[in-house]
Structure formats: C-alpha cells, structure tokens
Design a protein around this nucleic acid. Sequence first.
RNA 1: GCUCGCUUGGUGUAGCCCGGCCAAUCAUAUUGGCCUUUCGAGCCGAUGACAGGGGUUCAAAUCCCCUAGCGAGCACCA
Length: 462
Amino acid sequence: MRLAPNPNGPWHLGSARMPAVIGTYKELYDGWMLCRFDDTDPETKRPDLDAYDSILDSIEYLGFEPDEIVKASDRVETYYDYARNLIEKGGAYTCSCDGETFSELKNSAEACPHRSKDIDTVLAEFDAMVRGEYASGEMVLRVRTDIEHKNPALRDWVAFRMVDTPHPRSEAAEYRCWPMLDFQSGIDDHEFEITHIVRGIDLQDSAKRQAFVYEYFDWEYPEVVHWGHVQIDEYDISMSTSTIKALIESGELDGWDDPRAPTLASLRRRGIRGEAIVNAMVELGTSTSNVDLAMSAVYAHNRELVDGDADRLFFVRDGVEKTLIGGPDHAEPPVHPDHEERGSRDIPVGGRVLIEPDDVPPNGERVWLKGYGPVRHTRDAFEFTGEDIDIVRNESVDVVHWVPADENIPVRLRTMHGDEHGHAEPRITTYRTDDVVQFERIGFARIDSHEEDETVSYFTHP
RNA sequence: GCUCGCUUGGUGUAGCCCGGCCAAUCAUAUUGGCCUUUCGAGCCGAUGACAGGGGUUCAAAUCCCCUAGCGAGCACCA
C-alpha cells in the first residue's frame, strides 16, 4: 500500500482519511506501507518545504509509521529512464502543439502531426527536454494511447512537460523537465511493487490512463479502489489548505492549530487522540459516493478513549459570586466517579462561591452544590440547609458545579467558536500540558499551559 | 457536449457481485425511562432508510431499462 501526499501544506482533517484507512489495512493484513511525496510540480502545486515533516508528524499522531519514505523529486532520473524506454517501444512521442490546438484535435479524435515522428527524433527531442533546452509550454512528451478512444480523457495524455520555476528542494532545483502525476505515480507503483491503491474519485481515470503504460511494459496493474470526497460538519471554515493558509496570513486564525481550524494540528491540540480520528475515518468506508463525516462520530470515539482517564474538575464560566452561610469549609468530590480508588479532591470552600449565571436558582429555591451540599438562595446569599441527597432524587433539586470565590485559578477555555473565560478549582495547576480532564457538566478539555495570570485549556468535546 | 461513476434513516455503515434466511445490520444522532451528587459513563426502550418509475421472476435493496439528483475526468495540477 502507499500514501501519496502532495506536500503543499499541513494536513487538514480530510487528509487523515488516507493514512487512517491504508494504515489500518496494513495492520490488518500485515502489509507494507510506503509514504511517497508526489512533489513533481514546482509551480502550480508548489511544495511547501515544512510540509514534508509536518505530514510525517501527522501520520505519527494518527498512530502509523510508513515502512519507507521517498520523494518523487529525488527520483526524476528514474522517470527519465523509463520514458526513454517507453519511447523506444514506440509508446510516447514529443509534441510541440500548444494546449488548445491539441485539445481540439483530441476532441475530434484526430492525431497531431508529431504523433508520427520517428523514434530517434523523439529520443533526441526528449533528451533536449531533459537538458532544459525548451521553455515552459514549448514541448511535451505524450503517451501514445488510442487517439480514437471513446473516452476523450484517455487520449494521448502528457507524461512530461517543461517547468521554468525551479523546485524548492535544492536537491531537485536543476530539473526543468518534470513528469506528470499519471506517469510518475504509475512508474513508482510498479517500482515499489504496490499491490493495492486507494485514491479519490478525481483520479478515477488515472488507472485507465496508466494502463496504457503498463501495457507497453507488460506490467500488471495493482488493485485500485476509488473513494468519494469527505465533508465535515460543525466547522465554519472550509477544509481547504489554501483557505486556511489565507486566514492564518490575514491574522483571522492564530495558526494551523487554532481550535477553529479543521486541521489535524488543531484536533491534536484539543486533546483528541489520533486513534479516535482513525476509527471515525475507517467507519466511513471506501464508498465512491461523497460522504459527510460528523464530528460527533469523532467525539464519540474519543470519549470512549479518554473518559476513564480524565479526572474531574470544576470550572465555572462567567461566575456569579454568592456568600455562603453555614455548612462545612471543605468539599471532597471524587476525582473520578467511576474510580473511587483515585481518591477525592479537597476544595477549600471559603465563605463565598462562584456559579454559572444559568445555574443560580430563583430566590427562595434550592440547588445542590456538587460535592458539597444543599443550599437555598436567600436574598443575595446561599444558606446551607443540610438536607439529605434525597432532595435531588425526589424533589428535583438541580446539581450544579461551583468554585471557591477566593481560592481559584483563572482559566481560559479555547473552543471552536471562540474563547471562554472562567475559574477552576486550585487542583487544575497540578495537571500538565497534554493532560485531558473533564470539566464537570461542561465537557472534556486538554490542559495546554499554565501562564502567570491564567491557565489555558482547549475544549475537546462535550 | 463526450466519457466514467454514485444514490439504504439526521449522519456513517452492513446487505447488492452469487435474488429468497431483509417486515433491512451495527454505530452515531435525537428522544423517553432507570441509575448516578455531571448535560460524562452505564443499562433499557423509542424514532428513523432501500431516489422515482417500469421490467424480469413464484420471489428484487439485490438483476435489466428509463428518469431524476449528485459527483468526477476530458489540464503542459496533484
């Protein structure tokens, strides 16, 4: 199997599908996986030098490791060799038609005059291409397929073209004659003995095009599966590398890991495990129709992975302060309700607490401060009533979360929809970067950093 | 326009190749209840789909045809 990313930027969520599914198949059938960077267009799909490593990082985050990593731009000589070989077999010819002219001929199933050149001329002209003696657009090498094929998409397609712009990788900067994807990929899949290919429906015709080359060389084409596009709900921002890049450059996003961006870096920072993404992607299957990935599916998988380990904490957004009259001066809610052995949290209550505005009961009504006890809202204070927990069960008194008004830690919670500010119980400072906790009644969050004036956390999901 | 492909509940998926065991699977979602000092977890229940129309057949989600909708390729992009 192989992954064939185009290194033109950090990965978004949709990019995860390829490694998720291919990596899973590899593990399932004890296969072999190549990561091949298809970076053969220095101009329109100009490679981003940082993307090579960032993509490998993302693959690791998802939990996979390629058995071999190559860059197509290191293999240009190999493609030249195969091209010469193909020319000698009469399978390709150099063509100096401009794109429009050829397109018209092709659409009327007519051969262009260059199609009948003799092999020696073609070889000589191809070598001139390799030496960079033509400018962009002046000469291409075409594969001789079937100019009358009923599908115009398959007629004599371009295998090599001239590109004036140097490749950003210095190792490849001297090449001017570059292979097109269908040629390069077709050669490499055979060279690396790839047995199974999974790719998008946009490449539906690739196998049919490459089949002509395979036939000239008498190779067997790998099994191929095409899948549709993935759309993802819940995001306001489009899942397009160029769109995200533009928003970052204009300052609307903080970076590739901004929680509002549909990128893998963002999900990682939110504390979502790669495995959850993989599970959700694998569930999508490989159907050729377009599919919608619901973020709730990713969340459901992640919740399953993190719930057991996530310690519970209180975090109050936009806290309303209430004086507490009577009652104990400590609260000891459990660290995790399903794991008594992890002990309890010791929260110093002080004389005042903060609770969320929506949780303040009407005057005269009661509320149960979770892990502490029952209080009644009287005038501007909470009066401890000392009643039994049965009032929660039988009299539908609400249970709410709270923090001490004095001993607490300011916390910023970064979410997909913007930042929220509030206060958490002191214990939050004992967690380290990357720990995932659950803010009770709010949701899971990843601890990002402890700054001087506040703790920064990222909202994972409910 | 030419060519190729797809269409099962809100979402994803199984089944389709080799017609009957499909009054259609599982997950998620929504929702009701139980439990619970969380709107988390767990348990029980409910909701909800074969794009439409013809045909073949004793029998069609499954095979054939037509229509509609969606998508892709027809690039010197990947």
